[in-house]
Amino acid sequence: MKLKLKKYKEQLSSWPEKGYHIMAQYDDERIIVYQSYRKEIGEFAVKNQYFGGSFSLTRMTWIKPNFLWMMFRNGWGKKEGQESVLAIHLKLTAFRKYLENSVRERSI
């Protein structure tokens, strides 16, 4: 899936004004999410087009559907262990399962 770019001011009018929404690029089969990794994990994934090397399935992780949100959360790639940001194409069915099993923070 190729990323579709649109100026912020052009897309603002089509965004929902209320409620909870996931703003992401997706098609009928995939959704693009972003994830931060240590430099060596990111370099391995880019070179080989799969996760391996020092990547671990037991590590808890956060994915974000918005690139700028990810960049803000990882300190613009400056936080230790979060220097590489990858765009990951997930199956939409898998993403929906992740949402079903997720926990949403609530304000007290």
Score class of each variant (00 low, 15 high):
K4Y: 09
Y8A: 12
A24E: 01
Y37N: 12
R30G: 01
Q11G: 01
R59Y: 08
E100S: 15
R106E: 09
M1K: 11
E40A: 08
N101V: 01
K18N: 15
K39P: 06
Q35C: 12
G42N: 05
I22P: 12
E83D: 09
S54N: 04
M70S: 04
E40V: 10
E10P: 02
W69D: 04
K78V: 03
N66Q: 08
R38V: 00
S13T: 13
E29Q: 11
G53A: 08
A94Y: 07
K91C: 02
F51L: 02
L99S: 04
K18Y: 09
Y8L: 11
H89Y: 09
K4V: 15
G42C: 05
L90H: 01
Y20D: 15
N101H: 05
G75C: 00
F51K: 02
F95C: 04
S13W: 02
S84I: 00
K6R: 02
T61A: 13
P16F: 05
M23E: 03
I32V: 11
D28N: 15
N48V: 08
M71F: 04
M1W: 05
I88G: 05
V46E: 09
I63F: 11
L5G: 09
N48M: 15
Q82R: 06
E29Y: 07
A94G: 07
Y26Q: 00
L68E: 10
S56W: 04
F51E: 05
A45T: 11
K78T: 12
G75K: 00
P65T: 02
N48E: 15
F67M: 14
Y98S: 13
K4F: 11
I31A: 01
G52S: 01
E17R: 09
K7S: 03
I108E: 08
G81H: 00
R59D: 10
R38L: 08
M60K: 06
K97A: 13
N48Q: 15
P65R: 00
H89K: 14
N48P: 06
V103A: 13
F72Y: 12
L86C: 05
M23C: 00
K2I: 08
R38Y: 08
V46W: 09
M1H: 01
K47C: 12
I22Q: 01
K97V: 14
G19A: 05
E80S: 14
V85H: 08
A87S: 11
S107A: 15
L3N: 02
E105W: 12
E40D: 14
L5K: 03
K18W: 07
I32E: 00
L12Q: 10
